[in-house]
Amino acid sequence: MQNEFIPLLLLMLVAAVICTAMVTLSWVLGPKKNTPYKASPYECGVQPAGNANERFPIKFYLVAILFVMFDIEVVFLWSWLTVFNSPLTGLDFKIFSFMEVLVYLSTWIVGYAYVVRVGAIDWDETTSLHPEKLGQTAQEAN
């Protein structure tokens, strides 16, 4: 039972118990006098219009995809990070592996430059689209 991770699991258990207790207690202790007005979604006091589970901008989805890609590239670095400057490695290893990581990071930079160039992280909706895709050319708009 000498595992170092057991206290970590205990901490998670305690955290889960606290969280569950907080949510459950308020459900148990509070009064329950539900009315149709309370049961309707809040839309500034007027009658709610339609279902809320509707379409949302694709941008959020795109950001999530980009995050996964860039995060995985960083995850690969972590294994190297810990050994890079540890006392166990010599200068030769440091220089060699640092150059290798620069090569690896260059792929990261090319990917990043591409993502910026195509406007995938431009949050102004229209700048990421070409004017032609909006159904008109720039000259027509002028």
């Binding site: 969280c19 907080m22 308020s26 509070g30 009064p31 329950k32 049961a39 979604p41 809040y42």
Partner: peptide
């Protein structure tokens, strides 16, 4: 706040709605 009414709207996804604050 513990003794306030836990007003739950009718149309929520109840399981997820109750788990979310804990998460």
């Amino acid at each position: 706040l513990f003794f306030k009414e836990d007003a739950t709207p009718a149309a929520v996804d109840r399981l997820v709605y109750f788990t979310a604050p804990a998460v």
